[in-house]
Design a protein around this nucleic acid. Structure first.
Lengths: 249, 249
DNA sequence: ATTTTAAATGCAATATTTTGCAATATTTTT
DNA sequence: AAAAATATTGCAAAATATTGCATTTAAAAT
């Protein structure tokens, strides 16, 4: 029995019955209760369920999660999110695109921080709802299924009325010469509008996405103010970007 | 044995059983376990499966779900949702407000039904994303935390461009004389706009909400075309409404 | 056809992860 | 407050991964 398989089963059980007992699962899966305990602990760390004394329960009401597997490269993304949050000042207006890194960023926002946040992304919006001191404004439009982001004329139109202090632009591909690129035309248009609606553009990208190029271009490196990766800012992989006058964190 | 051939077989196996063990495959294909490991690693990099310790598993659906904690009066709401769905014809344009009944309604939509759905509510939007044949358009605006609904000028503005066939208006309070009422002023404005954007207004309400009045008025009974409760249409509690020429389901 | 080059494979040594157990601590229940 | 249930921690055995390297195989170039 693979660990990942157990995780799926446990999650499924929790979804179905809203709660599970560790002992029951252990028996059902024929593993020791310690193993189940560790499984549940991991799932809890990935925000896929909530571990409680004696078992686990499904997450609370406004919790959107990515079902099935947990978030890929969560450790790296948390590191990025932590650096990103340091850029934020109380009272600012933020513009936040989609992507799991941005979701993690929002989740890690200090609860007492007062902000106004605009976002076209469902998962980001749901996370923002959990922050009592954040005013959230949803950017509407046609929803792209897999990225859960609103695109199209009305979204772009709504963005044209905004002047945000900081834009966290979830990035698919970034390259020191080609800039930021995407493979979905609609999303390209949206992100372009997001960039022009912001005073400062921050690109949180796990290093894996560096030096890659997609079909359509969103902007050149000159439009990016800050690049945040999980690496040390002095890492050699980042020097092509710092040479382009991008601030590296 | 060609590499591509092995890849096919591995993928097939994963599809079929949801998981594979490296050892099993190695034996089956008569290659070393190292080779299989490398194969699986490649397939993982192409996002065709997920490599885990000991083997590989199929990719989960990357869909967002709201992990609903026990929805109050779920049985009744399902009954209402079932009746409501019968009103829908393929290809129609729907306008759906918030509320757990509407979420349940969307969850129960047949997967093959083709629709265009507008909604200002996050939970509804998330559920709609799981429907492959539904085009979802999010109505943006300032999010009201507890109802997870977008309100304000831009939302109302966006609604003014819509002409929906059917509006499912989640209802807080309905009264045969006072009509539909709410306690949140912003939401009242939004729902008014939703009503004028639709040809036909349907109010799905559990019977508990009948005959109650809140602070602000959304519309009179004349604006409501259909009232759906979990009760039999002939129930005496509903007669004040049928007398107002509302269709009862 | 033959050489050159690159890719693929299996092996062995080493590292990492997973798992169950036992001893101890903590929480929950009575 | 005592008893029962559940958690935590450290540990060792087993399973699995990783790495470097030698060998084979396939592809490209001559």
């Amino acid at each position: 029995m693979l660990k990942a398989e157990r995780h799926q089963i446990i999650l499924n059980e929790v979804q179905l019955h809203n709660r599970v007992l560790l002992g029951d699962i252990a028996e059902e899966l024929n593993v020791s209760i310690d193993t189940v305990r560790r499984d549940v602990k991991e799932l809890d760390e990935q925000h896929l369920l909530r571990k409680v004394h004696g078992g686990a329960i499904a997450l609370g009401f406004n919790t959107l999660t990515i079902q099935g597997q947990g978030v890929y490269a969560l450790v790296e993304k948390r590191k990025i999110a932590e650096k990103a949050i340091k850029l934020i000042r109380p009272g600012q207006v933020l513009l936040i695109s989609g992507g799991t890194t941005n979701v993690e960023l929002v989740r890690m926002l200090p609860p007492k921080l007062e902000l106004t946040c605009f976002t076209p992304n469902l998962a980001v919006a749901v996370q923002l709802l959990n922050k009592p001191n954040v005013e959230t404004i949803l950017i509407g439009g046609k929803l792209v299924t897999d990225s859960q982001i609103a695109v199209g004329g009305s979204a772009i139109n709504m963005l044209s009325d905004i002047r945000a202090d900081l834009c966290f632009l979830g990035t698919n591909s970034i390259h020191s010469e080609a800039g930021i690129t995407e493979f979905d035309w609609e999303i390209v248009q949206l992100k372009k509008a997001m960039i022009s609606a912001s005073k400062k553009v921050v690109s949180p990208s796990i290093s894996e996405k560096l030096d890659s190029i997609r079909k359509y271009r969103i902007c050149g490196t000159e439009a990016i103010d800050v690049l945040i990766t999980e690496l040390e800012p002095t890492d050699s992989k980042l020097s092509p970007y710092s040479e382009k006058n991008i601030e590296i964190l």
